[in-house]
Amino acid sequence: MSELWHLFLSAAFVDNMPLTLFLGLCTFLALSRRPEAAIGLGIAMTGVLGVTVPLNYLIYQAFLTPGTWAWAGLPDIDLSYLALIAFIGVIAASVQLLEMLLDRFFPATHAAFGVFLPLLTVQCAILAGSLFMVERSYDFLQSAVFGLGSGVGFAIAVAMLGAIRTRLAYSDLPASLRGLGIAFVLAGLMSLGFAAFSQMAAAQ
């Protein structure tokens, strides 16, 4: 149990997706102008990551690892290079499914971040979650916890950046630094703060 909790914390803070691993930055910077949008994005990310990583684990184990086709008389076949296409298909399908479910059962939530949902298909952080799951060979439970943890980490980071950037609307910046430039510098400062977590992990 404590190991899973540790994995959750390290996925959320030490290996924070946008700030330490630079994943999902495009949406991270593009949608963090307003805190409401940022929080919506964070929730959507947590949901999609929490679903797709374990789902991709099952698909990878069932069809793509070397030797899984032995029952069909093809013991030598190794389809792991197809992982990328399989994962992206699963992600696109689950994003679509999530959108339909939300639309049917929670129309208010769907309206709140309907625009961002389809965008999540091409979110690097989501695909990276699945790729890390393969690279670090997590088991089913671990991959579920890892997916949720990364999603929560992303949500925290994007909500914080959104909150800071709303305040910045009132600041008097040099014209050419406004918008993207200062957002990068802010993300850098936040990343410096998150770097402290890696020291914590190293001390353990």
Binding site: P174, S176, G181, A183, F184, V185, A187, S191, L192, A195
Partner: peptide, 24 residues
């Protein structure tokens, strides 16, 4: 990680200082 953000932020600043029409 942080320095990559800083460098890119400064780069954006530099580009937009040279081409002011890109400023937001």
């Amino acid at each position: 990680a942080p320095s990559a953000f800083f460098l890119l932020g400064l780069l954006v600043w530099a580009v937009r200082a040279v081409l002011p029409e890109q400023a937001e």
